[in-house]
Design a binder for these strands. Structure first.
Lengths: 231, 231
DNA sequence: GGGTCGATCTCGGAA
DNA sequence: TTCCGAGGTCGACCC
């Protein structure tokens, strides 16, 4: 990895066009040839970048550019997409290279899959007497997250989200419409379960006779002793 | 901005839990206190990070940690969300700080807003004899991208996307449902216009009687002489 | 401040 | 490979 701090301006042309006026920034060149342009603030997203695979050529600035103060030009291109990014460097303030090797990568937990496993284990969070039929119940238009039966044996389709948005309600609606045409299943009721449910999504669900269920991930995980806390 | 290259492991606990095993990485500390952990490859997204506002404390490792080879511990916390990120540093290979100032920021063009403007200007791409009523036509549930009338005066609602996905069809469906209840507008036909339309989205649109329209941004921009090319 | 929607989204998994 | 959905999404805009 090569790290350069430089006063530079940047132009990108590809799926859109973008321009960065002259300022001091970090230019990060990764060993796969990709380039990131970071400012000293903002979020984790660079101001501009070029994704691998790409190649960087260093060019001599022409007379006009030298006149304007450019000491070095980087032209970064992507063969496949024809994207191009040009860095016009006016002053290099730091330049260093570092060997880093391949990263072993990130391991995660706490995503939708964990929520689904926990809800399947604690199925009576849906209500007294509920039983699990199966997770990822397959239909023609995709898998329903959880299929259960209520105390009186009626089918219950559960759509699970970390954040319950209007999209999730639409998705569940499509499943319910389809499943209610299946005489083996009908009538099927819907439950929209999430750690957080947006008001609009709640309103739409109510309008369609879909029950909303707020989930407390920490409490659900607390009941599951297979997880230990790191902190 | 402070740049540190170090052999380190990283643990994050917040909206999810994540762990990075020991390896050499770049630690970028921005002046707003945010931290980015980058490997020497992949795309612009860091392996792990902490968004501002957050604070970094440097701690002495305890006896067990020293035994394991830790020379320095960074504890990064976010007051509001109670997220925590811990960097266990085993070896520092580089450490430098740089003054960069505030960035003037990025200017863009070629995004959905530009497509919308171009389609409004070239409204007969919808078909012979179409006329523009207005862009961002407001309804109770949000703005319709473009409202037009066809050659015979019938209302046409256009949903515009760069990439036409199933969500866009759902969105247009909701608008049409609402607008068709308005006697001043009904009957309203729908057009789903995008630079690229996914097969599933096209199928759903067809099923709902919504017409699909593929847009060629470059051709549309070519007709509009107010744009010049940078490259 | 919250809500909605776009994004050069990125990333992962499954068909 | 393509398609599809999730994201610690982020960020912009509008209320």
């Amino acid at each position: 990895m090569r790290l350069v701090i430089a006063r530079c301006s940047v132009d990108y042309a590809g799926r859109l066009s973008a321009h960065l006026p002259l300022a001091t920034r970090l230019l990060m060149i990764k060993s796969d040839g990709s380039l990131l342009v970071h400012s000293d603030g903002g979020s984790y997203k660079p101001l501009n970048w070029m994704s691998p695979p790409c190649s960087i050529r260093t060019l001599e600035p022409d007379a006009d550019q030298v006149e304007a103060g450019v000491v070095e030009l980087w032209k970064v291109t992507q063969a496949k997409t024809a994207d191009i990014l040009v860095v016009s460097i006016h002053e290099v303030l730091h330049d260093s290279s570092h060997e880093m090797g391949i990263d072993p990568g990130l391991t995660k937990d706490g995503v939708e899959a964990d929520l689904q496993r926990l809800l399947a284990e604690q199925i009576d969070l849906l209500g007294e007497g509920h039983t699990l039929v199966r997770r990822e119940y397959m239909t023609a238009i995709g898998p329903v997250d959880i299929l259960a039966r209520d105390a009186s044996g009626g089918a219950v389709a559960v759509e699970l989200k970390r954040r319950g948005d209007i999209d999730g309600v639409e998705q569940l609606t499509r499943y319910l419409e389809l499943m209610n045409r299946d005489p083996h299943l009908a009538p099927v009721t819907g439950v929209f379960a999430a750690q957080e449910i947006k008001p609009q999504a709640r309103a739409l669900a109510q309008d369609r006779g879909i029950r909303c269920l707020l989930l407390d991930y920490d409490a659900m995980r607390g009941l599951d002793d297979s997880h230990s806390r790191l902190f």
